[in-house]
């Protein structure tokens, strides 16, 4: 089995609200990312997928955030590192690309200077070498005229080009792990296809592990090998991509997959999940999906189900198996 790049164990992230109040955004999240695989972290807005990734990068403000659990990145326990040690991890071991390429770049700095900044911070290359590396990086992400682009400002580039620059910057110190937070959400479909192809190429050529955070199940099916589904701050299901789409086990995953309109399969009405995501400050007792779940029983409202292994690499957090649920529904 490939080397494990990132291991998150029992991660809980809380944010301060008011003077003494803490809100739990993510709790009990565990997963791994190995070299050369693309892992999808999916869920709807507010499910905690971005909070999880920012916790791994330690990008939350210390004063207002409490993180517990264990995050092992490249053999080091991230939560025990000093700020300086963490700084050198970012870029070298792990880097991140964001949703809004336009706003993630500094608008008053030339592309070349921004790229050089990242490279000089993490290596001790000379000015000439930094320039060469920048040109090579831009070329590798498919920017047609790298020398020209280095002199441009972000506003002179299109969204797709900016995202390529972001990827070039993230890959410039050859991190083993890349975290991509909704990298294509702000882009048009034809440009999205280009960026996804680029990420797949990076994985193939450099054996990079990629944690892809997205709400788009189409993107997941397209390039991920394994998928983690989150709902209201919990992981509810994890499985290889084929298994997840063919035999989703958690009622939320099933509902989510069914509610996506699918090209080439025209339906008159879409199956939908009733209700909406619960408020972080007022999480229901028991299973967090119970209020929206058509199978929910008394037990579901009392017991919060743990994530259990149901097959070799398939875990799911529901008190009942699919068969039991169908029987209960038929019985009612």
């Amino acid at each position: 089995m490939a080397e494990t790049l990132l291991e998150v164990k029992d991660l809980t992230t809380q944010f301060k609200r008011g003077k003494k109040d803490w809100i739990t955004a993510v709790s009990g999240v565990s997963f791994q990312v190995r070299a050369g695989e693309i892992v999808g972290l999916v869920g709807e807005s507010g499910c905690g997928k971005s909070v999880t990734s920012l916790s791994v990068m330690r990008l939350h403000s210390k004063d207002t955030t409490r993180i517990s659990g264990d995050i092992v990145l490249g053999g080091k326990h991230v939560l025990d590192l000093s700020d300086k040690e963490m700084q050198s991890m970012r870029g070298n071991d792990v880097s991140m690309i964001f949703q809004e390429p336009m706003s993630a770049l500094d608008p008053i700095m030339r592309i070349g200077d921004q790229l050089a900044e990242a490279i000089t911070l993490h290596t001790d290359l000379s000015k000439d070498e930094v320039h060469k590396r920048s040109v090579a990086m831009l070329k590798s992400v498919g920017i047609p005229e790298p020398e020209m682009t280095l002199k441009n400002y972000p506003h002179e580039l299109s969204g797709g080009m900016c995202q390529r620059v972001m990827i070039a910057m993230a890959m410039s110190c050859e991190p083993k792990l890349l975290i991509a937070d909704e990298p294509t959400t702000a882009l048009d479909v034809t440009i999205q296809a280009q960026i996804l192809a680029l990420m797949e190429q990076i994985r193939r050529e450099r054996n990079t592990g990629i944690l892809l955070i997205t709400h788009d199940l189409g993107v997941v099916a397209e390039i991920c090998s394994r998928v983690i589904v989150m709902y209201a701050g919990h992981v509810v299901e994890e499985a290889p991509v084929d298994e997840l789409f063919k035999h989703p086990q958690h009622p939320y995953t099933q509902g989510l997959i069914a509610s996506v309109p699918r090209l080439g399969r025209r339906v008159h009405r879409l199956p939908s999940i009733p209700g909406s995501v619960p408020d972080l400050a007022a999480m229901p007792d028991g299973c967090r999906f119970a209020p929206r779940c058509k199978y929910a029983q008394e037990e579901c409202r009392a017991t919060d189900p743990a994530l259990v292994k149901i097959a070799d690499d398939h875990t799911c957090s529901c008190l009942f198996s699919e068969k039991e649920r169908e029987e209960m529904l038929a019985h009612e």
């Binding site: 047609p144 299109s158 797709g160 080009m161 048009d188 479909v189 034809t190 440009i191 999205q192 296809a193 280009q194 996804l196 192809a197 788009d216 199940l217 189409g218 993107v219 997941v220 099916a221 397209e222 991509v241 084929d242 789409f245 997959i257 996506v260 699918r262 090209l263 080439g264």
Partner: peptide, 23 residues
């Protein structure tokens, strides 16, 4: 445009027509 839309089904391996360049 149609070929660029990701389909939420890992069995559908579509041939993408990758358009060159930007708008």
């Amino acid at each position: 445009l149609l070929s660029a839309v990701p389909v939420p089904d890992p069995d559908v391996k579509k041939e993408h027509i990758l358009l060159q360049g930007d708008l």
